[in-house]
């Protein structure tokens, strides 16, 4: 099982500890990660999609071409990259006239989109690895740990393009939490967006969305929150430290990327996967680990 490993910008350049945990966990369960020479920003789903949708598809198509040359499907670990690359891949396969326009641009750099690969997210790839195989590698089942999952938006929607899990009632991330021996708790506002897409134009209101979510997760007495996107991670882990509540103490909810929780269950130590680089301390969770 081998994949063209598309890192994007946020994880290697801002949250490298997530890259570390992801590499260690995926390799441990038998996924070979191939580095993509010359890959760039996916195409950028917020600014560039909003300014010129075809420019967004064009930049994404260049990255798709690199994986096509490697004859490998793409594994993305950022939901922004996933939406971008998947939208480009599906649209270019579906719409011949779009493909013609984009390929004309790509010819300026000697590339051509052929439509020969697929774009997958980390949950999708772990499902392909299979629950039995992952289970066989678990060294520290996370019994008694209460996890609030935040699947996030672009892992799931728009569903006619993404075609992964139920767009409004997803279950696959929760299933992978239970596989590790932990409990995936139900909580209100589970599908509420992290607000990253609002940050550029209204930071205060974007932070308000973070606060709404953390309020209900705190009330649900979760031991940690689990995300699968670096934008969501920055919103909940870093922004959490900036939120001052009038009548209550500061939030203290550990936020982990799924591969970090998986790494712990696989027996890797918190220090080798760099959990100390989180902005909100993960110590309360580590103390509860069996």
């Amino acid at each position: 099982m081998r994949y063209a490993f598309f890192l994007g910008c946020m994880i290697p350049l801002r949250l490298p500890h997530i890259e570390k945990a992801t590499r260690m966990a995926l390799e441990a369960v038998g996924v070979e990660l191939l580095d993509m020479e010359g890959a760039s920003c996916c195409g950028e789903p917020i600014s560039i999609q909003s300014l010129d949708r075809e420019a967004w598809i064009t930049l994404a198509a260049r990255n798709l071409c690199i994986a096509e040359e490697m004859k490998a499907d793409i594994l993305t670990i950022c939901s922004g990259c996933y939406e971008t690359l998947k939208t480009a891949n599906v649209s270019l396969k579906r719409e011949p006239s779009l493909r013609e326009r984009i390929n004309e641009r790509l010819s300026a750099i000697g590339k051509e989109f052929r439509g020969s690969i697929e774009v997958k997210n980390i949950i999708e790839v772990l499902r392909e690895v299979g629950e039995e195989r992952i289970k066989a590698h678990l060294k520290r089942p996370l019994k008694g740990i209460r996890v609030a999952t935040h699947p996030g938006c672009h892992l799931l929607r728009p569903s006619d393009i993404i075609q992964f899990d139920d767009p409004m009632r997803p279950a696959l991330l929760d299933r992978l939490i239970r596989l590790l021996g932990a409990e995936s708790i139900q909580y209100p506002k589970k599908m509420l967006c992290c607000g990253a897409g609002l940050k550029l134009v209204d930071l205060e209101k974007a932070n308000r969305l973070v606060e709404m979510k953390l309020d209900v997760i705190e009330a649900a007495e979760a031991d940690c929150m689990v995300v699968v996107c670096p934008y969501c991670m920055i919103q909940y882990d870093l922004t959490q430290r900036m939120i001052k509540r009038e009548d209550k103490a500061a939030f203290n909810i550990p936020v982990l990327y799924y591969s970090e929780l998986l790494s712990l269950a696989l027996g890797f130590s918190p220090s080798e996967i760099g959990l100390r680089f989180h902005r909100t301390s993960v110590e309360p969770l580590l103390k509860k680990l069996p």
Partner: peptide, 15 residues
């Protein structure tokens, strides 16, 4: 300003 406040979460697209 309104068009720039959407987070592009695509929930409205689904519902």
């Amino acid at each position: 300003r309104m068009i720039w406040l959407c987070t592009l979460c695509h929930t409205c697209y689904e519902v």
